[in-house]
């Protein structure tokens, strides 16, 4: 498969934004799913991986916003930190996916994802601390706590995303990272 065109990247971004609205609703039936899987992060990370930083950024901003507009979840109070978090996810993951080339698809994937997720969680932690504490108590503590409670989510997403990426590659819907010669 040839390189992915800009038109296709745009449409994939659109599709990922739509999935940000749909997936959390689909996970409703599963007990505790929202907290465990953070289903909205999956399309954002994927969009960054496949389409790169700028598209990932758009997906991260528009995904939570649309979800809030069309389904009422997340509620307006949680929206700004969530938008910041997702925007950083998509952007950093995309930038890393562009720059890191280790000759192993798995290694590239994990490095980009872990980098993106760490950056996003720290950014969201800081944003929350800035908005609500007004400097009264430790910003670092809040950011740290945010990160630690999210650890299981990180583990689960690291297990999920490569499976989805490989399925898409096998189906010929996205190009392989290192095509066999």
């Amino acid at each position: 498969m040839k390189k992915i065109t800009a038109v296709k990247k745009s449409i994939i971004t659109a599709v990922c934004i739509a999935l940000c609205v749909v997936l959390p609703q689909a996970f409703h039936a599963i007990p505790n799913a929202g907290a465990v899987y953070s289903p909205m992060h999956i399309p954002v990370l994927l969009c960054g991986l496949i389409c790169g930083g700028p598209f990932g950024l758009l997906c991260g901003l528009a995904g939570p916003l649309f979800a809030s507009l069309f389904t009422g979840m997340p509620p307006a109070a949680k929206l700004p930190p969530m938008m910041i978090e997702c925007a950083v996810y998509g952007c950093v993951t995309g930038l890393l996916a562009r720059t890191v080339h280790t000759k192993s698809t798995y290694a590239d994937l994990y490095i980009s994802l872990v980098g993106g997720m760490l950056a996003g969680r720290i950014a969201a932690g800081l944003a929350k601390a800035l908005i609500f504490s007004a400097g009264a108590y430790s910003m670092a503590a809040w950011a740290g706590g945010y990160f630690v409670t999210a650890l299981p989510g990180i583990v689960i997403q690291l297990a999920l995303l490569p499976s989805i990426v490989f399925a898409l590659m096998k189906a010929g819907l996205i190009p392989a990272r290192y095509p066999k010669k």
Binding site: T5, K8, L19, A171
Partner: peptide, 16 residues
């Protein structure tokens, strides 16, 4: 998740 993403990307492919 896998079928949802496959179906969605299939549509993205067709539309683009």
């Amino acid at each position: 998740l896998v079928p949802v993403f496959l179906a969605a990307f299939q549509r993205a492919d067709e539309l683009s």
